[in-house]
């Protein structure tokens, strides 16, 4: 790996992370507590504390292309135990938002699941588990995963075939639409 060029740290990236997460990255003194307790760490490329360190160094590329920002389960163990009360989970969330906005591929399954979930919410106003699973499977081609669970769930009446649609679906759809437009405005405003 090429050495990190300390002089080329992306100050705007640091500022954006700090503003969007409302956390002060300078407060982190790298004790490692967030990394120590993270239950998802075994799936990470960088540990939580390493990610914070990379943000401190303004390493946009390394952070936004990392697997870790997609695998965080937002369990808040890190935020709970941080001696400097940094909401680490919120920081990782914000990094994932940025990675999405900037078109990083990320973890495909995690991204597609979130997309399928939100699509279901956008269309019905509520999450329809069977429907979103179908969409997810179509996109990932993971037809057999969890298939064994379906019969019991169906039998117990826990997977309704039809979505529970709300009346004011348009209001929810509008939230998504405005969100999308707002994002477009952001980009038009020239903010990286």
């Amino acid at each position: 790996m090429e050495p990190i060029q300390l002089g080329n740290g992306d100050a705007e990236f640091i500022r954006k992370v700090e503003v969007e997460s409302r956390q002060d990255m300078k407060k982190c003194y790298q004790c490692g507590n967030c990394a120590a307790g993270c239950p998802m760490s075994f799936t990470y490329d960088y540990t939580a504390s390493q990610l914070i360190r990379l943000i401190q160094l303004g390493q946009r590329q390394r952070v936004l292309s990392s697997r870790a920002v997609w695998m965080c389960a937002t369990c808040e163990t890190c935020s709970t135990r941080c001696p400097n009360e940094i909401d680490v989970a919120r920081v990782l969330d914000v990094c994932r938002h940025m990675a999405r906005r900037e078109g990083y591929a990320g973890e495909r399954n995690v991204r597609l699941f979130a997309d399928a979930f939100l699509q279901s919410v956008r269309m019905n106003g509520r999450a329809h588990e069977l429907g979103l699973m179908a969409v997810f499977k179509l996109r990932t081609l993971k037809f057999f995963a969890d298939l064994s669970l379906a019969p019991a769930m169906l039998l117990k009446g826990k997977l309704p075939f039809l979505p529970h649609r709300i009346k004011a679906r348009n209001e929810v759809a509008d939230i998504f639409r405005r969100f999308k437009e707002g994002r477009a405005e952001d980009a038009a405003g020239g903010k990286p």
């Binding site: 979130a114 279901s120 919410v121």
Partner: peptide, 16 residues
């Protein structure tokens, strides 16, 4: 006529 809170996927896409 409540709607889904967006669960984990929503806050992982955007806090607003």
């Amino acid at each position: 006529d409540w709607n889904c809170c967006g669960s984990t996927p929503a806050h992982q896409v955007d806090h607003v």
